[in-house]
Amino acid sequence: MNTSINKKPTLRDIPQARLGVWILIAGEFVIFGGLIVAYLLYRFRYPEWAEMASHTNIVLGATNTFVLLTSSYFVVKAHDAAIKKDKNKITLYIGLTILSALIFLVVKITEYSQKIHHGFTFSGKELVEQGKHIESTYWGFYFLMTGLHAFHVIVGAIVLFIVMMGARKGKNYQRIEVAGLYWHMVDLIWIFLFPLLYIAN
């Protein structure tokens, strides 16, 4: 083991894949950031959106936040296991992460079906018919932001699964760290989406 722990690496010491994922993460931040900026600006402008935000289910949202935070912890533990090349622990922790992703998606689907059942749809046509045309756009943002995030969850879970299968065959351990970084980004974005959509009403 190298003795230079805690010494800052130079740009050339970093594995390419990790550097690439970091740059990708910066790009993703700006994409989600653009959506969040647009949402915030409208949210400041329309106090009536607060009433719409109170229709979101804070219990389900909080569950999902907890699930994602926990999965983030599992991923760093998997990274730790990868450094020790401990195949069983890698399988355990990445398996738990993928399980968390599935729980997240199930909760998300429950939430979506509740919303659609109550007439809060993506296009917001029902609300426009009720004369709440300004409020209808809130649900556009809600579904677009959470939907795009859920898409990233699905992609992250698939990537983690592929990486786990590779690690079980005893190769490409470094991929776990990279996939883990991507997964943390999914968590990071949720950390901001949760208060924006669920709490601040």
Partner: peptide, 14 residues
């Protein structure tokens, strides 16, 4: 390009 295009990608989706 990377820092500036993100909001537009979001806008294009919208």
């Amino acid at each position: 390009f990377m820092f500036s295009v993100g909001p537009l990608i979001a806008g294009t989706f919208m």
